[in-house]
């Protein structure tokens, strides 16, 4: 990739503003949720179902969330990760700071357009297969800040979202329910078929 030289903070600001405006122009439409295959008739190779079952079980039993907590829903996630609600019961207590080692993005909080390129970049750099849980009203639709010029009205403008967890903020139980829903979705995925 070509690396542009930046020599001053004003140049950096201009470059960043240009990138943000391009992203806003590109993300006027919402990205459809990757769930069309869920309701369809299951067209899978019957002989491969045991392999699918093992792989899906392995994938959903050890999910690795990545750090993406721009705002206050992060505290509910922290509570979920702490001892009382304890997401390590689902094999995912370690939150990775690097997207290379993560396959789940729990987008907890309001996202501004200034932060959006970074979130999109982190999502792009995550290893596949990868999933996204949109946590809270702001992550779903922008929440009470929806009408603001600077707030992304829903993470599905920039990245495909698998599970939406409503609430402002959602209680830890709600997030756990969302995680369970994601587990159910992963359980339906097939190696060579739909939902890949």
């Amino acid at each position: 990739m070509e690396v542009e030289e930046v020599y001053s903070s004003s140049e950096l600001d201009k470059k960043e503003g240009k990138a943000i405006n391009e992203l806003i122009a590109r993300s006027q439409e919402t990205i459809p949720d990757p769930d069309e295959w869920l309701d369809e008739e299951i067209k899978r190779n019957i002989l491969l179902t045991s392999v699918d079952a093992i792989l899906d079980w392995a994938r959903r039993s050890s999910m690795w969330p990545v750090f993406c907590f721009p705002a206050c829903c992060a505290f509910e996630f922290i509570t979920t990760a702490a001892s009382r609600f304890d997401i390590s019961r689902f094999g995912m207590e370690i939150v990775r700071a690097s997207p290379r080692q993560a396959d789940l993005m729990i987008t907890a909080g309001t996202l501004t357009w200034k932060m959006a390129p970074q979130v999109k970049r982190i999502y792009d750099q995550m290893a596949e297969p990868k999933w996204v849980i949109a946590m809270g009203a702001c992550a779903i639709s922008g929440g009470i800040f929806r009408s603001s010029y600077s707030v992304v009205p829903g993470y599905n403008r920039i990245i495909p979202v698998d599970v939406y967890v409503p609430g402002c903020p959602p209680r830890p139980e709600a997030l756990l329910h969302g995680i369970r829903m994601l587990h159910k979705k992963i359980a339906k995925e097939s190696l060579f078929g739909e939902g890949k």
Binding site: M1, V6, S98, P117, R121, D124, Q125, K196
Partner: peptide, 19 residues
């Protein structure tokens, strides 16, 4: 799965573009 692209293969720096 193996779907590399230029962004994915580039350096990770907390989501920022490297300068």
């Amino acid at each position: 799965p193996y779907n590399p692209n230029p962004v994915k293969s580039s350096t990770f720096e907390c989501g920022m573009e490297t300068i």
